Amino acid sequence: MMRVLAAMSGGVDSAVAAARAVDAGHDVVGVHLALSRMPGTLRTGSRGCCTIEDSRDAWRAAEKLGIPYYVWDFSERFKEDVVDDFVAEYAAGRTPNPCMRCNEKIKFAALLEKALALGFDAVCTGHYARVTRDADGHPELHRASDWAKDQSYVLGVLTETQLEHCLFPLADAPTKAAVRAEAAERGLSVAKKPDSHDICFIPDGDTAGWLAEKIEMQPGEIVDETGTTVGIHEGAQAFTVGQRRGLKLGRPAPDGRPRFVLSIEPKQNRVTVGPERLLAVEQIRGIRISWAGRPVPAAVVDPGSGASGCFEVLAQVRAHGDPVPAAAQVVTDETGDPALVITLAEPMRGVAPGQTVVLYQGTRVLGQATIDTARSPATA
């Protein structure tokens, strides 16, 4: 038996995960993380995961399970580590993933640190992922049984030390429908609660409008791939690589086909657009590497050459994106900092700096890196 701290978001997944931890005989305590700096905020539709309504739903689930329940205020840490980071990344022309930062900095850093300090053995969440052990007993992160709901991508930031204290009871859940059915059988009121989506701290889903209140926007040029001005924007930071809608171009493309955002240059306050084919990327360079468990031997950098060997991987750049076969290598730059160079076996569309690339071998998550640059074969 372990002392388990169950992170309860107020959704069906975390409620069933906590219930399964209780069934397994663990000593379980439920905790809801108050992340919003406006605790009176109410849920809008099915957006968000940290409103006052979610806190009440989590409390009702804990009461049904007969476990102690607490609310911990992590709003200051959340603002600094997730919200402020999100704004800073967009201001620099990058496209961040706030769920990755929340898992890295809040749920499996700040929360786990506090849990261990209080004598808990593990933190339990409702993520669809699996932790196993290799032949030497070291933890590994793997995809869940239900690939349609698999969330191992957003957990790719977890380290070996963190994986030692993670409990994912939904790893073997066959489908989300089965989890909802189980919640109903247990009498949990969240059984039919809609899934949260989009960015929890932007409740109306208008990311561009929200950013406009946080970043000083200045009008600038929209140019095509030849450098010809084709429109005017109200702020380069509000765009995302791969974006098609909302460009408001004054000059149509010569072939009449849609144009997409190819790059964003905040310093020049310029947005470049072009045909869809120019979104294809064949090589990715990632920084801020972390390994989910022990790195594979081929990823260890040789001190003499300053590079590792090449190793075969599957590269994924979105939470529910298709993994692409690739060859990866860790290299060090002139400052000695490591970078991950990933050469894709087939082009990947619309890769943006700031996104996270997660590497897999089979179902195992090897690790992740933040995309720094992406090279297109059409412009090489």
Rank of each mutant, 00 (worst) to 15 (best):
A253T: 00
P98S: 01
L116Q: 09
D224T: 06
E213G: 11
A6W: 09
G205T: 03
V296K: 11
T240R: 15
A183F: 04
V154M: 13
L249I: 04
S305L: 14
V273Y: 06
D337N: 12
G93N: 01
A327G: 08
C49I: 11
T132G: 08
A18Q: 03
H127G: 08
N97S: 11
A19T: 03
Q361L: 12
L5P: 09
Q218E: 13
Q283M: 13
R47A: 05
P68A: 00
T373E: 14
K64W: 05
A307I: 08
S263H: 05
F311N: 02
A92D: 08
Y360T: 00
P347R: 06
F201V: 00
V87T: 00
L155P: 02
Q368A: 13
A129R: 03
G126P: 08
E213W: 11
D337I: 01
R245T: 10
A129N: 06
D81N: 12
S189C: 08
S308N: 07
L366C: 09
H32S: 13
V123D: 03
T228D: 12
A326F: 07
A24I: 06
G45P: 02
W59F: 12
A299G: 00
A326C: 06
K79W: 14
G11P: 10
C200L: 10
I222T: 13
C102A: 03
E213A: 15
G25I: 03
V12K: 11
T373A: 15
I371W: 08
R244E: 15
P353H: 05
A253N: 02
R3L: 09
K214D: 02
Q283S: 14
I289M: 12
R349F: 14
F260I: 01
E276V: 04
A236P: 05
E63H: 14
A109L: 15
Y69H: 14
T207P: 10
S55G: 15
G367M: 06
Q283F: 07
S152M: 07
F108N: 10
L112G: 01
V317I: 13
D57C: 07
T207Y: 11
V22G: 07
N97D: 12
Y70D: 06
A17H: 08
P303E: 06
H32I: 03
L249A: 06
R375N: 11
P39Y: 01
I199F: 09
L158Q: 01
C102H: 01
R20P: 06
C310G: 10
S196I: 00
V281Q: 15
Q237W: 03
L314D: 07
L359Y: 01
P39L: 02
E221V: 09
E234K: 14
A280E: 13
L170T: 02
Q162I: 08
C200E: 08
V273W: 06
D13P: 07
G256A: 00
